[in-house]
């Protein structure tokens, strides 16, 4: 094992064991690497975590249990970005500007109900780290369609007979359009992807201003795959270019992970029950949109890798 990985394995974890995340919960692995990565990058800084309603309302612990080694403020669905701004403002006034205020918001709160608040906090360039924990539907309520649900996906409100029409909201690109200092997409599908993930968390810790991390993490019961497969599904999402890993650092776009031999999107889709109803034509349409978006990002990155 390389030394950097040994260090990561040995880290003290801020998501404590015994929490109530589902078996195989993709986001549980992701949040561990966000929090521990921020600490590794800036050991002297404290973290305050702001969580709008989501599965994490429950995983955070049933009162009086705290599943995190940091202070957590739970908020209504739509106000996490504004509340993180308020906490940061207060801490600045109290001489605690060294504290990193982190939002951990789902795709429902980020892309839908709280979107105006996220956009406004970005436009004000609030000095916070906003993490979009994207599992592509309202999973806490049992898998209903959100603005981040992909084309063709089955959810309980877009059943197989009337699957999700239209495209997943391109939230990372929308956030980058705010001109904020740092935007990145992250996924945990392999050791190289972990390295990419941690480098982006480190970068987010270094930069001041509004930082937006978009993490794709699988939900075994929602996406309908076995609980052992969260990492594999994330790997296929990236290697099929379904979820490209890129960053926009100070306005400069860069694709950070180039699949050597891109897989067809079918390889990603067929691992999950939520896509099992799709016809070949529908999969071709998804493939076309995946290619289109990759080309768009590649154009923005102009060959920077």
């Amino acid at each position: 094992m390389p030394a950097w990985l040994e260090e990561i394995v040995a880290e003290e974890k801020l998501l404590l064991p015994g929490n109530s995340a589902c078996a195989g919960c993709g986001p549980a692995i992701s949040i561990r690497h966000v929090l521990d990565g921020l600490v590794a990058a800036k050991p002297e800084s404290k973290i305050v975590l702001v969580i709008p309603s989501s599965c994490w309302t429950i995983i955070a612990g049933v009162f009086p249990v705290n599943a995190f080694g940091v202070s957590v403020q739970l908020t209504p669905f739509a106000s996490a970005a504004a509340e993180a701004s308020g906490i940061k403002a207060a801490l600045r006034l109290l001489g605690r500007d060294d504290t990193t205020v982190v939002v951990w918001g789902g795709d429902g709160s980020t892309a839908d109900i709280g979107f105006s608040g996220v956009s406004a906090a970005a436009e004000r360039n609030e000095d916070i780290v906003y993490v979009l924990n994207d599992n592509e539907a309202y999973m806490n309520t049992g898998n209903q369609k959100s603005g981040a649900t992909p084309e063709g996906a089955w959810t309980t409100t877009t059943p197989a007979g009337a699957p999700r029409a239209g495209q997943k909201k391109d939230i990372a690109r929308i956030m980058a359009a705010h001109g904020i200092p740092y935007v990145a997409t992250l996924a945990l599908g392999s050791v190289p992807m972990l390295r990419d993930f941690r480098a982006k968390v480190t970068r987010a810790a270094e930069v001041r201003g509004f930082r937006f991390l978009h993490i794709l993490s699988g939900c075994p019961p929602g996406w309908r795959y076995p609980t052992s497969q969260s990492t594999e599904v994330a790997r296929l999402a990236v290697e099929s270019r379904y979820f490209p890993l890129f960053e926009c650092d100070g306005g400069e776009w860069r694709i950070t992970f180039q699949p050597k031999q891109p897989l067809p999107v079918r390889a990603f889709l067929e691992t999950q029950g939520r896509f099992s109803h799709l016809s070949s034509d529908e999969i071709d349409s998804i493939q076309a949109h995946v290619d289109e978006r990759w080309n768009l990002l590649a154009g923005l990155a102009r060959g920077r890798v």
């Binding site: 209504p76 509340e83 906490i87 105006s116």
Partner: peptide, 19 residues
């Protein structure tokens, strides 16, 4: 702020942090 919902969230959170 961009709405009263956020505005109340902002002042609630700032107060919770001690100001």
């Amino acid at each position: 702020l961009e709405s009263e919902h956020s505005m109340f969230g902002y002042v609630i959170a700032a107060a919770r942090a001690g100001v």
